[in-house]
Simulated assay, not measured.
Amino acid sequence: MKKEDNPFSVAEAEESPGFLLWQVTSLWQREIRKALEKYDLTHSQFVLLASTMWLTRQNEPVTQILLSAHSKIDPMTTSTVLRTLQTKGLLERREHATDTRAKTVALTANGEKITRQAIKVVEQFDADFFAPLGSKTSEFNKKLRLLLQQ
């Protein structure tokens, strides 16, 4: 193949930030799935449970829209996942006190218990997974936040 026929703008696939991010994300997701299996939770379910717990501590009504924005999970998927969590008895959805179009979300006692346990497992998993970054973890997080601002 002639050099001008090469469709890649970088010399090697391993130097493509998108490809590297995809590889790391795939590895991380596969392992986080295993870590959450014992709680019968998908990663999206865990994120919405943990986000509900965190947002509840901010002392404002937790709505589906707020959860969607906080987690970066699209609103339709958020609604579907929340319905599943409600069916599992891990959270309750209620009519909002002042906005009839909105639903508020709250963990059940069992939902809070499972979420607390799963958070510990996920935090330990993350610590182990990202350990190779060592003292560069903070800088790595800063760069990820930079990408989230797009």
Rank of each mutant, 00 (worst) to 15 (best):
K2T: 12
K3F: 07
P7A: 10
P7T: 02
F8V: 03
S9G: 05
S9L: 10
E15C: 11
G18E: 09
F19Y: 13
W22C: 04
Q23W: 08
Q23N: 14
V24I: 09
Q29F: 02
K34Q: 10
K34I: 15
L36M: 11
K38F: 03
Y39A: 04
F46S: 06
F46T: 05
L49Y: 08
S51Q: 11
W54H: 09
W54I: 04
R57G: 15
N59P: 06
T63D: 15
T63N: 10
T63A: 12
S68V: 07
S71H: 01
I73L: 08
I73E: 06
D74M: 09
T77A: 14
T78H: 04
V81H: 02
V81M: 00
L82C: 03
L82V: 06
R83C: 03
T84W: 13
T87M: 08
T87C: 05
T87L: 04
T87D: 09
T87V: 15
K88R: 06
G89Q: 03
R93N: 04
H96T: 01
A97K: 06
R101S: 09
K103Y: 13
T104D: 04
A106F: 10
N110W: 06
N110H: 14
E112D: 14
T115A: 00
R116W: 09
R116F: 09
Q117N: 09
I119H: 05
I119T: 08
K120V: 12
V121E: 15
D126R: 06
A127V: 00
D128Y: 10
D128T: 08
F130A: 00
A131I: 03
P132T: 07
P132C: 01
K136N: 14
S138N: 11
F140C: 01
N141H: 14
K143W: 13
K143F: 12
L144H: 02
L144Q: 04
L147T: 05
L148F: 07
Q150L: 13
